[in-house]
Amino acid sequence: MSVAETIGDENSLADAEPLLRVEGLKMHFPVTEGLFMRRTVGHVKAVDGVSFTIAPGETLGLVGESGCGKTTVGRCILRLENPGAGKVVFAGTDIAGMKASEISKLRQDVQVIFQDPFSSLNPRQKIGSIISEPLRVHGIIKDPTKRRERVAELLRICGLNPRFADRYPHEMSGGQRQRVGIARALSVNPKFIVCDEAVSALDVSIQAQVINLLEDLREQFNFSYLFIAHDLSVVRHICHRVAVMYLGKIAELADCDELFDNPRHPYTQALLSAVPVPDPTVEEARSHQILEGEVPSPMNPPSGCVFHPRCPQAIETCRREVPELQEFSPGHMVACPVVLGK
C-alpha cells in the first residue's frame, strides 16, 4: 500500500455517506448492593454521550486508558450491550431497537476480533469448525464440502496453512490464533469489523505481522474498522481518524495525522507525551509532561469537564460546565473550553 493511495482514500472518505453513525450513545451500568434486597446504589457511566461516524472503508481508532468506555462502545455497536440511550445507525437502520432475528442479520455485516486469542476460541472445537460455524449459522454456505473449501481459502487469506483446519487452538501460538480469530470474522464477508485490542496481547514481532494482515485485508475487501486500542503508536499506524476517550466521553476527534501532529486537548497532549519512543536520543530530547493523579471513578465522575482535576490548564469554567465536542478546525473536534477559547 503506497502512501499516495492512502491519502487518496482519505479524501474520498470524507465525502462518503457514513456506514455507521453513533449519536449521543449512553451506557450506564447499575451498581447494586445487598444480598436479598438488591437495590441500585448508583450507576457506572461507562459511556456517557458519544457521537462519531465511520465511512465505508475507513478505520476509526478509539483510544483511551482502561475504564474509559472504549470497549463498551464497541459492544454497543455489536449489540452485545443494549445501549441505554442514543442511536447506533448502521447502514441506515438503528440497531438499538432491533429484534433478535434482525440482530442475527446484523452480525453478518458487523463482526468482531477480540483481544485475547486464548479465551476467544473454543478449546474443544477444531479450527475448521470455529471458522465454518458462522457460515453454517447464517446459512451462507449449506454444502459441507464447499464450506471446507471456503475455510481453506480463509485460512490462506489470513496467512495460515489450510491444514490447520484439523488442529485445536492449543496447538497454535498466540499470533496464529489471532489469525484464526480474523479468519472467523472474515467468513461472513462483513462490511464492518470491531477490533477490540486485537494486537495488544501479541509480542512486537508478531504484532507487526497481524497489523500488516489487517491493513492488507482492508485494502482487499474495503471494509471499515473500529480499532479499539490503548497503544497509540499502533493506532497512529493503522487508523484514518482517531477519537480519544476519557471517562466515557470523547475528548478529541480528528484525522490521524492532525491529531498526532497537533493535539489540542490537554489530555491528548499528555497521553502522547507519555508514550515512550523506541529511540534513546529522541527520548533524551523530549520533554515529558507527566499527568498527576489517576482516572476518577466512573461511578462518581467529577463535575463539569471530567478531566479537570488532572488538567494542567483547567480554568473555573471547567469545574462547572460540561464541555461539548465542537469543531476547532475543519474535521478536528475538541471538547475543551480552554482550547475553544470560551
Binding site: T6, Q176, V204, I206, A208, Q209, I211, R236
Partner: peptide
C-alpha cells in the same frame, strides 16, 4: 534489527511500513 523495524513509532511518518519478523520463536 527486526525488532526495531517491527515497532510502530509515534515520531515516524504514518506511511512507514512495518517489517515484521516472519515465523515464530
Amino acid at each position: 534489527l527486526g525488532l526495531l523495524a517491527s515497532v510502530p513509532r509515534l515520531d515516524q511518518p504514518r506511511g512507514t511500513i512495518l517489517i515484521p519478523i516472519e515465523g515464530q520463536p
